Simulated scan of single mutants.
Amino acid sequence: MKIGLDIMGGDFAPEANVSGAILANKELPQDTSIVLFGDQDVVREKLVELGGNPDDFEIVHAPDVITMHDHPTRAIPQKPNSTISKGFDLLASGEIQAFASTGNTGAMLVGAIYKVNAVPGIIRPCITSTIPNIKGGNSLILDVGANADCKPDVLYQFAILGSMYAKEVYGIENPKVGLLNIGEEETKGNLLTQSAFKLMQDTTDFNFTGNIEGRDIFTGKVDVIVCDGFTGNVVLKQAEGLFGLMQKRGLRDEYFDRFNYENYGGTPILGVNSNVIIGHGISNDIAVKNMLLHSYDVTKSKLTDKIKEAIN
């Protein structure tokens, strides 16, 4: 297996990415290699500087960078020699089996949709996030920002994707799926959630347990939380903000320590034809290492192939 990494993505590039790759290389199986995308001279220099061996990695020369300020749709065709563009070229050709980046999320979405394409039958690919629950496990929430506006059938597909991700990657048998709403009753909510509930209530495609409220998000009441990307992003940023506030006030708690983004590294774009992993822009070396390890887990699970089979 070959996992590609955008060396120039994120706020602390290239140091955090190179250091994270060195750490991940020590933990990944011997039959798995990391392919580094970036200016080859810079990559080699950083590898030596940070105690790595350039011979342990494959380096693909990609001298350009898609920055956070670049327009995602225009950046991919305008910067064909960028790390993200080159990464998707090799992913599309099958030369690497996964591609991970902490860079421009919009460009990663555009590259995923237009270079490796959505799985036939998928209306809109989506992004998930991991929410620690008080029971000691994790719940998944999707979408968290890729699709601010959704229709009921899109939420239905999110439920299928999230359920498969929870089962195949996290090993949760028959994951419980909940629809995020302002009340538990099926008549509550806006037109979107009311219509989505009607689609989900009698399904056999996943284990739908009904509506859940915001107070249920961290309780572990369900394994998969489904919502539109606007709502999901607000939930995610609120959780991140609460964790940051506690850190600033010097408050430590075993449960809230699990909100640290370093623990999770990255999350896949679900519903595209290959394994694309997005990490947080502020990722340090530990987060990058965990992003690469999760890329391995997602690829090894053959999640993408199983999604294709389920949808088709």
Rank of each mutant, 00 (worst) to 15 (best):
208 F>W: 10
71 H>M: 12
126 C>P: 01
142 L>Q: 08
53 N>F: 02
120 P>I: 06
134 I>P: 03
300 K>Y: 09
132 P>N: 11
193 T>V: 13
91 L>I: 06
161 L>A: 06
112 A>H: 06
9 G>R: 09
101 S>I: 01
115 K>R: 15
262 E>N: 15
63 P>V: 11
283 S>R: 03
265 G>I: 01
263 N>Q: 13
282 I>C: 13
223 D>V: 03
286 I>E: 11
75 A>R: 07
143 D>K: 10
160 I>M: 14
229 G>M: 12
107 A>S: 14
292 L>K: 07
245 L>P: 01
58 E>N: 00
162 G>K: 11
154 V>P: 01
263 N>I: 09
301 S>D: 11
267 T>F: 10
136 G>P: 06
209 T>Y: 01
305 D>S: 15
27 E>K: 15
156 Y>G: 06
22 I>F: 04
309 E>H: 08
95 E>W: 00
3 I>Q: 14
254 E>C: 00
210 G>F: 02
262 E>I: 05
228 D>R: 10
280 H>Q: 09
65 V>Q: 11
251 L>M: 14
284 N>F: 12
185 E>N: 08
187 T>W: 13
299 T>A: 15
154 V>A: 04
237 K>E: 09
5 L>T: 11
217 I>L: 01
279 G>F: 00
268 P>H: 01
186 E>A: 10
268 P>C: 09
35 V>S: 09
37 F>Q: 13
51 G>V: 13
237 K>N: 11
110 V>Q: 06
94 G>V: 07
161 L>T: 07
224 V>L: 05
297 D>M: 08
215 R>G: 04
45 E>Q: 13
182 I>D: 06
170 Y>F: 15
274 S>G: 14
34 I>N: 10
308 K>W: 01
246 M>V: 02
218 F>M: 14
168 E>T: 05
1 M>Q: 09
267 T>D: 00
264 Y>L: 12
300 K>C: 06
28 L>A: 04
26 K>Y: 06
43 V>S: 05
21 A>L: 08
167 K>E: 15
164 M>L: 15
45 E>L: 10
85 S>Y: 03
189 G>T: 01
254 E>K: 15
142 L>R: 09
242 L>H: 09
240 E>L: 10
185 E>H: 02
112 A>V: 01
257 D>A: 14
239 A>R: 03
83 T>E: 07
20 G>R: 03
32 T>H: 05
304 T>N: 10
206 F>E: 03
53 N>W: 00
42 V>E: 14
4 G>Q: 00
183 G>D: 12
213 E>W: 04
19 S>V: 05
279 G>C: 05
156 Y>Q: 03
214 G>T: 05
115 K>I: 08
213 E>G: 02
95 E>Y: 05
1 M>L: 13
48 V>Y: 02
